[in-house]
Design a protein around this nucleic acid. Structure first.
Lengths: 97, 97
DNA sequence: TAACTATATGAATACTTGTTCACATATACA
DNA sequence: TGTATATGTGAACAAGTATTCATATAGTTA
């Protein structure tokens, strides 16, 4: 093993697995520089509220998004710089193909 | 849609999906700064030759690895800087959690 | 040419995972 | 308190996927 420890391999692949779904990519894309509630996300990306909620749970448990309550709604945003960086690097790669 | 075009969403998720498997992560990790043949990869990461070959096909078709023949063997290496960058950024994120 | 080594691949199986549907929970406000 | 709106979640189903096994292909060397 060269760059990372054997025991981190699973974690790394789990992380990328989360970026590896089009609904989650849509959510992440929608949340760049934005704070949106579940309804808004669902409307913006054209996916059912339930599906969005399921995926947000996954993004939350991986600490890729954070959230706060405001009145009746729960507003989500990207957790940190890393999420955006990884996402944008992926975009760059695609754009250069 | 904010950062990328709707029609790129699928491509982005497909890209990350490829990083989202532990066998492929092991292969990528083994290939950082290395050029290895299929046998060597299989031995290094402890996965069957067949499984490695199947996964290399996926990595190849996504243009994440390149290869060249030398005598009896086929030597694989990472396709470009991007692959390493994306991988290392993922590692960083994991290490900081 | 025959035997050997390296690599690829098709089929089958087991496993994982995303969506939908129905419903639960919870919060706000009249 | 009752109603409306927002969000979460369990079960079921469908679809995708990684590994294994057996075998094919191809190149090397005796």
């Amino acid at each position: 093993m060269k760059f990372i420890d054997e025991d981190k391999i699973i974690d790394i692949s789990e992380l990328f697995k989360i970026f590896g779904d089009s609904t989650r990519v849509k959510i992440i894309n929608a949340l760049i520089d934005n704070e949106l509630c579940v309804c808004e996300i669902a409307n913006n990306i054209g996916v059912s509220q339930s599906a969005v909620s399921h995926q947000l749970r996954i993004l939350k448990s991986a600490k890729l998004v954070k959230y706060k309550k405001k009145g009746n709604c729960i507003y989500y945003s990207l957790a940190d710089e890393h999420v955006e960086k990884i996402f944008k690097l992926g975009c760059e790669h695609i754009n250069e193909l």
